[in-house]
Nucleic acid binder design. Sequence first.
RNA 1: GGUCGCGUAGCUCAGCUGGAUAGAGCAUCUGCCUUCUAAGCAGACGGUCGAAGGUUCGAAUCCUUCCGCGAUCACCA
Length: 591
Amino acid sequence: MNIQEVLAQQVKAAVSSLYQIELPTVEFQPTRKEFEGDITVVVFPMLRFVKGNPVEIGTQIGTYLQEQVQEVAGFNVVKGFLNVVINDQFYLDFFHSILDEKDFGYVKDISSDAVMVEYSSPNTNKPLHLGHIRNNLLGYSVSEILKASGKTVYKTQIINDRGIHICKSMLAWQKFGEGETPESSGLKGDHLVGKYYVAFDKAYKSQIQELVNGGVDKEQAAKEAPILMEAQAMLRKWESGDEATVALWKTMNGWVYRGFDATYKNLGVDFDKLYYESDTYLLGRDVVKEGLERGVFFRKEDGSVWIDLSDEGLDEKIVLRSDGTAVYMTQDIGTAIQRVTDFPDIKGLVYTVGNEQDYHFRVLFLILQKLGYDWAQQLYHLSYGMVDLPSGKMKSREGTVVDADDLIQNMEETAEEISKELGKLDGYSEEEKKKLYRTIGLGALKYYILKVDPKKRILFNPEESVDFQGNTGPFIQYTYARIQSILRKANFDTGALGKDVTLHPKEKELLKQIQLFPETIQLAAENHSPALIANYTYDLVKEFNSFYQQVSILGEPDESKKQFRVQLSKKVGEVIQSAFRLLGIDVPERM
RNA sequence: GGUCGCGUAGCUCAGCUGGAUAGAGCAUCUGCCUUCUAAGCAGACGGUCGAAGGUUCGAAUCCUUCCGCGAUCACCA
């Protein structure tokens, strides 16, 4: 039981004993640094039940607590704030209780109810960029956080492997590629295919211009450009199963998948189950037809099928085209149902998709509810803000993107430069160094993105790049490395570990912060927010560095105290590692 | 135009279900490496929390209106 739960009961008991009144709740907050105390009881809300002067009431409750509760060592009252001092023993007991616990803070008995987290879900016509990185990091991290909070989690993605966008790359490759392959060009598969996506756009634009110069109206030119019409024809051939087209599609998608795999591996993300749109794009149609019979949907005169959501404050939305083919929404209905069929233990789905699709997911969830699926109550759109550049939105076809692979490589190179300047890596082999640069570079990038509230849009300035000092990944990794350095030099003697040492204020602060880890994980899981983990870790690390600076660990003459500090440092290291694992960030032994 | 989101220090961000004098980092300026890693620590400077009303003992936080930025409202995905 943490101190807040203990005190809540005791405060209620105090009020009951002093005033014969039952309080429904007690409000707490951490005591501000400028006052003495560890936890603060806010008296104001009690005034609704207990009439009187807040300072007097606070003092009376404080006196009661000090007399009756062994953990309470003292108190003071400022205005309506009762600051309670908790004795060292409480924190020491807490520390001993978690000393040997592995993965402290993680929930160990995993619920049989599962959650499926979808993330990444790229189109297969171009390489991944910074926007995808945010998506991947968020999805992966939220998955890990949900696991640590006690859920079974399946990570998945839906690969958008069909459609006009892919035909554009295919067509451009046919026209301008001269048989180029990843092997012949030395290009990564996704980059090669992306190159032809850009090539298509260039040709398309110049054809439009030609038409316009020839006197054609601009809008019409955009529809009639020959290369676009060719692409549309190619899509029709693909849908009719034309062998040559399908073969080319398979070949080029294969290149892209190998490229994606490399990037995913680089980023350190993975998936338990993949879904391909080409496999599932027909599935939703049956459901829609069935829903039509049950009156969930209605048919318009031209044969198209719709749902009326005006009762929910939304509009009518199409779910099937007049020619009977599936739209985006149809596929998503089918995919959701397919997933629950494949994994019957799923009680919820988390969709990691940008906030430009907020409306789409509101509609999707409503439709699934109206179709009567009980799990539809548990759907969550993890909506995140776009990553924009100072020049504006990233657009693959115009080449204005920060490429994922390039960015990762840049980060590693920056880490290498800084490491070399600092020159602390004597004795490391080239291989070890390389691995370390990766750890640090990726750590900087991942932390930079994950520490921001997912809802907020990120403005990424490549010129200024990502910091390595202050509230950053490397700062936290550095602290971890420092701790490991101490542990390498320390002799462990748990027998000498004192159970009744007097705590230094910094030690107490550290223990308080460690104690917050389990609830922080729960909070992060409820809010689907890795940012809460990042900020927690930062606070812990700041606290440790301050401790490290003020208090000598290995130089402490009292063996009992020294052992305590060594063990405390070790625990802080473990929590840093556990927390960073939730963010998908590695920690180094040295740096 | 309707709907949704965002607006906190020069910049990037915290601020939990309303609570004490709104916190960090970067940048600028001071100190601290003969002692456990200075990617660090300690400090200074920097704020009409977009604006105005309202609710409350108490508002950055809740409500209303307005302003700014973004997204979205397709038989595209």
